[in-house]
């Protein structure tokens, strides 16, 4: 079932086109409910192949200042799980593979089974859980499988070889490779550490690998596209919204257009 998801089809298609997939992240309800949907749609129009919607959480330890600020804006404007569900439904309705990125506690509070059922019903195909190590993921893995939801875990440069095998064997859809040691939005020379990690992942898994953390422009997207199956961009989109309050949708579309060129320059 998971093999027939739009997400899996996307990676097959990108491979045949000899390019990487562009995965764009924006927080749900940022800056507010209705604009959030418009802005995510603009990101898709600009050329994003898959959307990762973040659930804004009060204690986002994996996020740098840019996404923290966005999460705070969205929370102040009343984002809830119920409203996130509406956004997921609206975005997945466009036909683009739609994923949710959330810290674990909101799922636990919602109830993993109900969460999987409700969000899967709305068209969500996968969940990225940045603070759920596989040791704590037993319940979630079983629930996700039952609902044909891809479980996407993060691997880091510090993940040892033995562990890399364990984590990646529990991933479906794709494997999220953190480009560097750090939080989202960190500006570093991503390509070096990321290419080493992606190569290590390829030695133990045949699942597509997407690289995230610190990719913000066309040149970086192109660098990463040379060795990865997917390029994940978040903070650059959030920044575009924060810096262009009068017309955030246009700004986001432009960023997406640039990045879409990048992932095709292998």
């Amino acid at each position: 079932m998971a093999g027939q998801s739009k997400l899996s089809e996307l990676f097959i298609k990108c491979k045949s086109e000899n390019r990487a997939a562009l995965i764009g992240y924006l927080p749900a309800g940022f800056p507010n409910q209705s604009d959030s949907i418009k802005i995510i749609k603009a990101m898709i129009e600009g050329g994003v192949d898959a959307v990762e919607i973040g659930f804004p959480y009060s204690d986002p330890v994996m996020d740098g200042p840019v996404i923290q600020e966005a999460a705070e804006v969205a929370r102040n404007n009343g984002i809830t799980m119920a409203k996130t569900l509406e956004i997921v439904k609206e975005i997945s309705g466009t036909g683009v593979p739609t994923l949710l990125m959330t810290y674990w506690n909101p799922i636990e509070k919602y109830g993993p089974a109900k969460f999987a059922h409700d969000f899967s019903d709305s068209g969500m195909e996968g969940v990225i859980t940045p603070d759920l190590p596989i040791e704590e993921a037993g319940v979630w893995l079983a629930t996700a499988k039952e609902n044909s939801i891809h479980s996407i875990f993060v691997v880091a440069p510090s993940t040892g070889d033995g562990r890399l095998k364990d984590v990646t064997s529990n991933c479906s859809g794709f494997i999220y490779a953190a480009s560097s040691m750090g939080v989202t939005g960190t500006q570093t020379n991503v390509a070096n550490t990321a290419s080493i990690l992606v190569e290590r992942v390829r030695n133990v898994s045949g699942t597509p690998v997407a690289v995230g953390l610190g990719v913000s422009n066309r040149a970086q997207a192109s660098e990463v596209a040379k060795f990865a199956d997917g390029v994940i961009v978040g903070s650059a989109f959030v920044k575009a919204v924060l810096q262009n309050p009068s017309d955030p949708a246009t700004a986001v579309r432009k960023v997406a257009e640039e990045l879409a060129l990048g992932v095709r320059e292998r």
């Binding site: 330890v61 994996m62 940045p130 603070d131 704590e136 993060v154 880091a156 984590v167």
Partner: peptide, 9 residues
């Protein structure tokens, strides 16, 4: 242990 993968090591 509910932490980012980077801290497990």
């Amino acid at each position: 242990r509910f932490v980012p993968e980077a801290l497990i090591g």
